[in-house]
């Protein structure tokens, strides 16, 4: 039983999120119960406005839940202060966003080592990890480049490297292939799937992309803020 609980990386129980839109309450997430276990490669799909991104924000602690409870690695997010949440995200979650969102004034190496700087890792440790992860995402020789000197695919690979370099247990990716052509997107997904299998990190995608759906081993469909189907594939 304990082993089973330890494998539960993300636990959402009765999660609701209501926004106020010019004074009108909008229920973006209307009560989701979900458990994601270690090493899963999960895609959350659904039409625009179904609550995918909101749910991703709730399970990462970027947004507070209106009702219900979210536990990550056994820790209740709503019990944490702003500073504790920052530290928790830094150490446990890697983020990949649709628009790459690298810091444009920092080089590839500086972007990747940013989180490790926040963690207080030594210069040597940071350098070693950056070199290793750049090799894994096939960007050797790009360490000193600024993001604007990279292609879209390369930037997203840097974003993947930044998300993974601190060895988080969860990678949350919001439409990571939306700005990429299909070939580059497929390469990136294959790379992430490979990293998922070799490192055992949990990947959760919010997406419309069929390529991700094809590769996902679990497909959760959201509709109007609720899970309409949850399918695990072999």
């Amino acid at each position: 039983m304990n082993d089973e609980v330890n494998q539960e990386v993300i636990v959402a129980r009765g999660v609701k999120r209501t926004y106020s839109d010019n004074g009108v309450p909008v229920e973006a997430v209307r009560g989701i119960d979900l458990i994601i276990t270690r090493g899963e490669f999960t895609a959350i799909v659904g039409p625009s406005g179904s609550g995918k991104t909101t749910f991703l924000n709730l399970i990462s602690g970027l947004d507070p839940v209106s009702e219900g409870e979210v536990r990550l690695n056994g820790k209740k997010l709503s019990a944490m202060s702003g500073r504790e949440l920052s530290d928790f995200r830094r150490d446990n979650i890697g983020f990949i966003f649709q628009a790459y969102n690298l810091i444009p004034v920092l080089t590839v190496e500086e972007n990747i080592e940013y989180i490790m700087l926040l963690q207080g890792l030594s210069r040597q440790e940071r350098h070693q990890r950056v070199e290793k992860i750049l090799a894994e995402v096939k960007l050797e020789g790009y360490a000193d480049r600024l993001p604007n000197k990279l292609s879209g695919g390369q930037r997203q690979r840097v974003a993947v490297a930044r998300a993974m370099v601190s060895h988080p247990s969860i990678i949350l990716a919001d439409e990571p292939t939306a700005n990429l052509d299909s070939k580059t997107g497929a390469e990136l997904l294959d790379m992430m799937r490979n990293l998922n299998q070799t490192t055992g990190m949990t990947f959760v995608f919010s997406t419309h992309d069929e390529m991700i759906m094809e590769r996902a081993e679990r497909l959760i469909v959201l509709k109007d803020g609720l899970i309409s189907s949850d399918e695990t594939r072999q």
């Binding site: 990462s60 970027l62 702003g82 500073r83 920052s86 530290d87 995200r89 830094r90 150490d91 983020f95 966003f97 628009a99 969102n101 810091i103 940013y114 989180i115 926040l118 930044r162």
Partner: peptide, 16 residues
């Protein structure tokens, strides 16, 4: 603003 949001998301503390 988005960049600040990202910096906060990836673990930058409010004080930082």
């Amino acid at each position: 603003m988005f960049e600040f949001g990202v910096l906060r998301a990836i673990g930058t503390r409010p004080f930082a």
